[in-house]
């Protein structure tokens, strides 16, 4: 596919001797929501970080909007277009800066003039009023913090959002709110999502297509519709599917 917004070709990432990503290729179409699933250590987060320039790429090609990205050098224009939301909102916000400062930071870096308006708009968009503007992260709940992290990613008006387990640190009830918010902003701004999750339920809810990863490789690519209908090729995917259905007493042969 040449029309892909984000593509990775034969990507290899090694940490010392360990191959975190082993010959991985994905293509994400414009406006698509693409899911990466797998257990911890499968390389799904590493792939996301490699795209963002946060992982040591040994070989292979990453292309974003037809621009080939070399190594892990990224310029400002890239970060204006590609933003990331991390897993743990307790760790990804500066504990001693107000929400206002944290939202201002990307604007200052990129020299955006109308900061005032953008901050108010971003807060409004994620469903937090301007009353939250001068609070500190510890005064917010986990769900509210993740909304701030999303607001910070959106404030530069990117076209691609990289989401690394955006709801796995949240309660089930709060997860629903954040997922709804993400869907809403994707619709409104026609964003491209690449979303990492270990929860097949979340990924099939959010994504059109997904790649299943294991031990640094993509073992299967399929559409959410295929997954729902049970058209699964790999045993590993089937195991994940069973696991996501919850505990079954009879199923445990132990």
């Amino acid at each position: 596919m040449t029309t892909a917004t984000v593509s990775a070709e034969n990507l290899v990432v090694t940490y010392d001797e360990f191959k975190a990503l082993d010959d991985v290729s994905i293509d994400v179409a414009p406006g698509e929501s693409f899911g990466l699933v797998g257990e911890s250590g499968s390389g799904k987060s590493t792939l996301l970080r490699a795209i963002a320039g946060l992982a040591p790429v040994t070989s292979g090609k990453i292309r974003v909007h037809d621009r080939v990205l070399v190594g892990n050098r990224r310029d400002k224009a890239f970060y204006r277009d590609v933003q990331m939301v991390f897993q743990d909102p307790y760790g990804s916000l500066h504990p001693r800066q107000t929400i206002d400062r944290q939202l201002l930071e990307p604007l200052a870096i990129h020299g955006v003039a109308d900061g005032e308006r953008r901050i108010l708009k971003a807060l409004d968009e994620v469903g937090l009023g301007s009353g939250f503007r001068f609070r500190y992260p510890h005064q917010l709940s986990g769900g509210q913090r993740q909304r701030i992290a999303i607001a910070r990613a959106l404030i530069l008006e990117p076209s691609i959002l990289l989401l690394d387990e955006p709801t796995s640190a949240l309660d089930a009830s709060v997860q629903a709110e954040v997922l709804n918010l993400l869907e809403q902003v994707r619709r409104d701004r026609k964003l491209t999502f690449i979303m990492v999750s270990h929860d097949l339920g979340v990924v099939t809810h959010m994504c059109d297509r997904l790649a299943v990863m294991q031990n640094g490789r993509v073992v299967e690519r399929l559409s959410s519709a295929d997954l729902v209908a049970g058209r699964i090729g790999e045993e590993y995917t089937r195991n994940l599917m069973v696991a996501s259905k919850g505990f079954q007493r009879k199923g445990v042969a132990a």
């Binding site: 089930a172 629903a176 809403q184 099939t204 959010m206 996501s244």
Partner: peptide, 20 residues
């Protein structure tokens, strides 16, 4: 009921998810 409903489940197409 809210806790039960808010989980995205495979095969149930509900957009947006019901929230508490």
């Amino acid at each position: 009921q809210g806790l039960l409903n808010c989980m995205p489940a495979i095969g149930s197409d509900r957009h947006p998810l019901p929230v508490l």
